[in-house]
């Protein structure tokens, strides 16, 4: 499985191994980790939750989009759910391509798309409270009910 939602700690090397191919000249790995400070506010831990079957489908869609844009790319993504402490690994994205520039670009594309279309949410727990992120600021709204073309290409 190239696209997974994991309840246990992610084996980074196992994700990288999935994209090894003889045609590749580069593999880029993105490791998303839990940051302690956001705008001066101290996070104690996070809870990630996913709509798992749809999240896997959307990760697959991102992989398909990458393969259409960057020829010869292989993609593997694993996202963690559950309780994560500071410095824990939340997501690992591995992309291999024949040439290095594509591997960097395609990997960046993957993480940006995850933040747009994959149904995964994090709940921040601070010393003085907790909040689901992505909703309260209401910086993102979908008046038509789903992401607009522009939302998806930002």
């Amino acid at each position: 499985m190239m696209y997974e939602i994991a309840k246990d700690p992610i084996d980074i090397q196992a994700v990288i191994d999935k994209v090894v191919q003889r045609e590749a000249g580069a593999i880029t790995t993105f490791i998303g980790t839990v940051r302690e400070l956001t705008k001066g506010k101290k996070t104690l831990y996070l809870i990630y939750e996913a709509y798992e079957p749809m999240a896997v489908k959307k990760l697959e869609q991102i992989g398909t989009e990458i393969k259409e844009r960057w020829e010869g790319a292989e993609v593997a993504i694993t996202h963690r759910v559950g309780k994560l402490d500071i410095t824990d690994v939340a997501v690992v994205i591995a992309v291999s391509t024949p040439h290095r520039a594509d591997a960097y670009e395609a990997n960046r594309y993957a993480i940006e798309r995850i933040k747009e279309i994959v149904p995964i949410w994090k709940k921040e727990h601070w010393e003085d409270g907790q909040e689901w992120i992505g909703n309260q600021l209401e910086t993102v709204a979908y008046p038509s009910g789903k992401p607009e073309e522009g939302d998806l290409n930002e």
Binding site: K57, E116, N135
Partner: peptide, 28 residues
């Protein structure tokens, strides 16, 4: 989402469809 795919406000629900409300996501 209807049956795990994003749906517009105009889409019509069919018997047995699974509907999910997806707040703005915050993975990664």
């Amino acid at each position: 989402a209807i049956n795990e795919e994003f749906a517009s406000n105009e889409e019509v629900i069919k018997e047995g469809d699974v509907i999910a409300f997806i707040p703005p996501v915050s993975g990664g």
